[in-house]
Every structure is written in structure tokens, then in C-alpha cells.
């Protein structure tokens, strides 16, 4: 399979990248890990005249621990994120998400920025970013812009990023004490899978009362974008953290929060049912981790 012809640009700074993007506008595409972009070009799903590689811009692939938050550069690879101590220790659901993306080979190239800008409803890192309240960091020649990740997704393959903008990274506030999070993805096999349903849950509780203080549940592959299960979250507020509550939350997420469709990977009915099961299970594990 051949790639179409294009011009290749390899800027060294974000500013240079933005200047190139401004010049070539929608005829240019940013290349991060390439694990989706090059496949889509080969399959003629998309076209481009200019490729602006971001790999030489070091700032984009850094992961910085600011103690109260962590900043992940858009071009950090899944493998790098997975291996970063602060991610392993404090953002286990994100680690689990990036560990499930593609294969060990893909994860050495694929970047979190690429996964997010692709905006697949099934994207592996997205539910975790949602439950960790990630802030999307964008930049254009006119300045910087930050928006909550939930507002970033506009539909399958569509985001809020403007044609002259670049995604520089994400800021995730460090989760509080007595909190935990978990991610489960469900597919047909155990590697290289495109999810049928994927769910991440975050839970913070009061160790004295066992009451749930805060919870966030994100559902993937059951709507046009990854979504929060807001009704299930509302139900859990101030409830005792226990199996029965998690089950009820799952039921609400299943019946009220998700709006899945049928496609060749799975039916809406099954996806809906699995939202219930995975919500319950991710909450239970999140609670277990929160207690540790």
C-alpha cells in the first residue's frame, strides 16, 4: 500500500508548527505518532498535501508532575505515559486506558494527543481523561486556550480544535486522598481490540462515614462522543459506597445515561447492558483502590 504524495515539514518549535499550519491551513495535517493518520492516508480515507511532523518538538512529549496536577504533552506516547511513575501511582485508570490501546508496537508510537484529536467514541484514553477532569491545552498564533475535555468532543472524529490551533497537552488535577479510579474495556479479544464498550469510574469517599463524596463515570462507545454518566453520578452522591449502590448506578447509567447504536462491532442492546455491568465493576474496583 502506498501513501499519497505530500510535502513533509518538521518544525522544531510550536511556533514554527503553528506558522506552517496557518500557511497551509486545512491542506495540512499534524503528524504525531502516525498510527492512525498514516493508516487513514494509505486507505485513502483522508488526503493531505502537507504533513507537519511534531516529533521534533520536545516540549510536546514531556510529562510534568506539578504535585497538584500533572501535565501530559500531546505527543507523549502511550508507552511513555504508562511507564511514568506519577501516572502509575495516581492515575491508574489512565494507565489502564493507555495500556489497552492497540498493541505493544502501536503504543510505542501512538500519542495521547492523537488519540484525543481522533475523537473516536471508543478511544481508549478518553474515558480516563474525562473522569480525571482533564483540561485540554490548545495554542494558536493568537495565544493559548484551555477547555475542559468534556467540551472538546463534538462528534465522531470532530473536536473543538480550530484549524489554526495545535493541541499541546492536558492538565489533570491530582486526585485527592481516599479516591480511586478504574477503567475496563470490553472487546472480542484481548489485544489489538477496538472496544465494544469502555467505561472509567472515579470515586472519592469519606472513610469515616463510607459516604461517596464525589464520583465521575465516563462511558465510551455508547454515544457520538465519550460521555459522562451524569445521572448515575448524581444518584451516587452521599450514598454509602457499597455493592448495592454501584449496582444501582450501573442500572441508571444503562437505562438513562447512554445512547448507543448498532454497528458491526456490537448491538445497541448489548452495549447498553454492558454499560450497567462495567459501571458497577469499575466503581467497585475504584472504591477498593480508594480504600488502599
Amino acid at each position: 500500500m502506498l501513501l499519497p504524495k505530500f510535502e513533509f515539514h518538521e518544525p522544531g518549535t510550536i511556533k514554527e508548527a503553528l506558522e506552517l499550519k496557518k500557511k497551509w491551513s486545512s491542506t495540512a495535517r499534524f503528524l504525531a505518532g502516525g498510527t492512525d493518520l498514516l493508516v487513514h492516508l494509505k486507505k485513502k480515507i483522508i488526503t493531505t498535501d502537507h504533513i507537519i511532523s511534531l516529533q521534533k518538538i520536545e516540549a510536546l512529549s514531556q510529562i510534568r508532575d506539578n504535585k497538584d496536577s500533572v501535565e501530559i504533552g500531546a505527543c507523549a506516547t502511550m508507552a511513555k505515559i504508562s511507564g511514568t511513575p506519577v501516572i502509575k501511582e495516581k492515575f491508574s485508570a489512565l494507565k489502564s486506558g493507555v495500556d489497552n490501546l492497540g498493541t505493544h508496537l502501536i503504543r510505542n508510537r501512538a500519542t495521547i494527543g492523537g488519540n484525543v484529536t481522533n475523537a473516536s467514541p471508543a478511544g481508549d484514553s478518553l474515558p480516563a481523561l474525562l473522569i480525571y477532569k482533564a483540561v485540554v491545552l490548545l495554542e494558536s498564533l493568537d495565544g493559548k486556550r484551555e477547555i475542559p475535555i468534556e467540551e472538546f468532543f463534538k462528534g465522531p472524529g470532530k473536536t473543538d480544535m480550530k484549524v489554526d490551533e495545535i493541541l499541546t497537552g492536558f492538565r489533570l488535577p491530582t486526585p485527592p486522598a481516599h479516591s480511586g479510579a478504574h477503567y475496563i474495556q470490553l472487546g472480542k479479544r484481548k489485544s489489538s481490540e477496538i472496544n465494544v464498550v469502555n467505561v472509567a469510574s472515579f470515586l472519592e469517599f469519606d472513610p469515616k462515614t463510607k459516604k461517596i463524596l464525589n464520583t465521575r463515570i465516563a462511558l465510551g462507545s455508547v454515544a457520538a462522543t465519550p460521555i459522562r454518566a451524569l445521572k448515575a453520578e448524581a444518584l451516587l452522591k452521599d450514598k454509602i459506597a457499597e455493592e448495592a449502590s454501584f449496582y444501582k448506578a450501573g442500572e441508571i447509567a444503562r437505562t438513562e445515561d447512554c445512547k448507543p447504536i448498532d454497528d458491526f462491532r456490537g448491538s445497541a442492546a448489548y452495549r447498553r447492558a454492558m454499560v450497567g455491568v462495567l459501571t458497577k465493576r469499575t466503581l467497585a474496583t475504584a472504591f477498593e483502590l480508594a480504600g488502599k
Binding site: T103, K188, R189, K190, S191, S192, E193, I194, F264
Partner: peptide, 27 residues
Amino acid sequence: HEEVIFDKQGRVLNHDLAEYKIVTSMD
């Protein structure tokens, strides 16, 4: 998990080894 799937025009939908799922080392 293996299954060749067609669309309504008779085109193979899962014509790659990502969507046509053979056994991996994990399975």
C-alpha cells in the same frame, strides 16, 4: 471471534487484521 462481515453492497467491512480478529498471543 473470526467472521468476515459485509455491508449491504457486498463489500467486506472488516478487510484488515484489526477488525478480522485472529488469535493473538494474549488470547
